[in-house]
């Protein structure tokens, strides 16, 4: 019986028919998606913090408004994504709990600090750029609610990336101090961004199944290469350099070759030893704990209202 369901399921996936929340799905598919979508949602929420760090110090009113709107967009993305995950049978509170206890992960990139205004540009250009590379294929995820959420997310993300690039472009055309600031930010954000695509293909055990289920369309290394190829060109427009001496065009492969990734750093940050892992998580927990009385009051008030209405109706 189970076998038949599984065949029907895979047949739908193969034919690019979306799987919807009430459809039968393998338990492993459900669990993988909960992990994938909630991790993505957490990344949006934690991702608000490094950029939020510069809202009160944005250099002019236009930049201030754009940055605030951008970080607010990320909260909106978190909201769509939590909702998409909830259709799989987990509550938002449960997901928060997994985040706060460290059971659920979020993108390691947000465990790096934003030290100067140029970091806001570098995050937009590189981090959002890498995120888009990962996310565009997710608009075709076999799971309907996730795919639909991602269509909205991607539209806004590409806007963010252009803004980031524009920040760096302005800095690169500015004073020497501004150019230095821009180069320093690119130096610090480049390798962590390259790592955003995850482990090498031969160390990414879930890839084969995820590709079969069409919740992943390209391998980590394929996407990473695409990202490097694009950035290696764009950096020229900025008049800056990427911090990789081995980066060079390879006419035989039609791609850029690039240097070795420091996987030791990658795994250390995943394990919690990045420069800001503790601060990011503490900040999220504090916001949640400080808000407890507000949430309690809101539900107590809603309850009172319900009772009043019931009394009136009776």
């Amino acid at each position: 019986m189970e076998k038949d369901f599984e065949e029907i399921f895979q047949d739908k996936v193969d034919k690019e028919i979306k799987i919807e929340p009430k459809d039968w799905m393998p338990e492993k598919y459900r669990q993988t998606l909960i992990r994938q979508i909630s991790q993505h949602a957490h990344s949006e929420i934690v991702g608000m913090l490094p950029e939020g760090n510069w809202i009160t110090r944005a250099p002019n009113l236009r930049r201030k408004a754009i940055l605030l709107a951008k970080v607010q967009d990320e909260a909106g993305h978190g909201l769509y994504l939590y909702s998409a995950a909830e259709t799989l049978g987990i509550t938002r509170d449960e997901m928060y709990d997994q985040l706060h206890t460290g059971k659920a992960k979020y993108s390691s990139i947000f465990n790096y600090p934003t030290l100067t205004w140029a970091d806001i540009g570098a995050i937009g250009w590189l981090v959002d750029g890498a995120a888009i590379m990962n996310q565009v294929p997710l608009c075709r995820s076999s799971f309907g609610p996730y795919a639909r959420a991602m269509v909205r997310v991607c539209k806004e993300e590409s806007f963010h990336q252009r803004q980031g690039f524009e920040i760096l472009l302005t800095l690169s055309k500015g004073t020497e101090a501004q150019r230095n600031m821009a180069q320093d930010a690119v130096n610090r954000w480049w390798w962590p961004s390259v790592m955003m695509f995850g482990p090498k293909d031969d160390e990414s055990p879930n890839t084969i199944m995820s590709m079969k289920w069409k919740i992943k369309r390209f391998t980590n290394d394929e996407l990473r290469q695409k990202f490097v190829d694009i950035c290696a060109e764009q950096v020229k427009i900025l008049g800056l350099t990427l911090p990789d001496n081995d980066l060079k065009w390879n006419a035989a492969t039609n791609h850029y070759d690039f240097g070795a990734i420091d996987w030791n750093e990658f795994w250390e940050v995943v394990k919690g030893n990045g420069p800001c892992n503790k601060q990011r998580l503490d900040t999220r927990k504090k916001a949640w704990e400080d808000g407890a009385w507000v949430r309690e009051a809101a539900s107590a008030y809603a309850e009172k209202r319900k009772n009043k209405k019931a009394v009136k109706a009776a």
Partner: peptide, 29 residues
């Protein structure tokens, strides 16, 4: 109000207060 962005008690209200902040900054501009 923008200081709340990312630190609100509920995600929906984080968005609301940021929105109000944006409106006010827009008026100021």
């Amino acid at each position: 109000n923008s200081e709340w962005c990312g630190h609100g008690p509920v995600l929906e209200q984080d968005i609301a207060i940021s929105n109000i902040a944006l409106d006010c900054i827009g008026q100021a501009r």
